[in-house]
Amino acid sequence: MTELYEVTIPASGSVENVVITVWLVAVGDTLEKGDLVAEISTEKVDTELVTERAGRVVALLVEEGDEVPVGTSVCLIAPVDAPDDAVTAAVAARQG
């Protein structure tokens, strides 16, 4: 099965929750390591979420405006060369 990389909300000081302000990617986009994925907001600061891996965006797991806890998976990325049927199966298995 294709291994998916989960983009998660990183821990930062005493922050417990963040809001996904704007998605900067869409399903199907190809990313390089370090690319911006979303703008996020906390009680104290607005910042950007980046990916630590290259690949193809295959699922956005939360909506713009959603408040989510630190550690939440918000986006799934598959290898660029992964077959579509394998990606579909992996996303379905991940989303349960």
Score class of each variant (00 low, 15 high):
E16M: 11
S73G: 12
I20N: 03
L61C: 01
L4Q: 03
S41K: 13
P79M: 15
A38I: 01
D84C: 07
R53N: 05
V58A: 04
T30H: 12
E48F: 10
V62P: 00
T8Q: 15
T21H: 14
E48Y: 13
D66K: 08
P83C: 05
P69Q: 09
A90T: 07
E16L: 11
L76N: 04
E48C: 04
D29A: 08
L4W: 03
I9G: 02
V45E: 10
R53G: 00
A59R: 14
L49C: 00
K44R: 13
K33G: 02
Y5P: 01
G65M: 05
V70P: 00
E43H: 04
R53C: 01
E39F: 02
A90W: 08
V80Q: 14
A89Q: 06
L36D: 10
V25M: 09
P83W: 12
P10K: 06
S73E: 10
V7Y: 05
C75P: 05
G34A: 03
V50T: 14
E52C: 01
D66S: 10
L24E: 12
I40K: 08
D66W: 06
T88E: 15
C75A: 11
V62A: 00
G55F: 08
V22H: 15
E52G: 03
S14E: 13
S12Q: 15
T21I: 12
A90D: 06
E63K: 13
E32G: 07
E64H: 02
V27D: 06
E6S: 09
D81K: 10
D81M: 07
T8R: 15
A93H: 08
T30D: 09
G65A: 02
G55K: 07
L60Y: 01
G13R: 08
E64R: 02
G34P: 05
V68L: 07
I77E: 09
I77C: 06
T21A: 15
L31E: 09
E48Q: 13
E48M: 09
A92L: 13
G96Y: 11
I9D: 05
S41P: 01
E67A: 14
V70H: 00
D46W: 13
D29F: 06
E63Q: 13
L60N: 00
I77G: 03
V62C: 02
S14T: 12
T47W: 14
L36E: 11
E16W: 07
P69Y: 07
G65Y: 06
S14C: 02
V37K: 00
E32W: 04
V45S: 08
G55M: 09
E6I: 02
G65D: 02
S73H: 09
A90N: 05
V70K: 02
V27T: 13
V25Q: 06
G96Q: 15
K33Q: 11
V74Q: 04
G34L: 10
T2C: 10
L49H: 00
E52Y: 14
T47S: 15
M1T: 02
T51V: 09
V80N: 12
R56C: 02
E64V: 01
V91G: 04
R94V: 09
E3L: 14
E52H: 11
E64F: 02
E67M: 11
V80S: 12
V70W: 00
A78L: 04
D35S: 08
T2D: 13
L60T: 01
V18C: 00
G96E: 15
T51K: 10
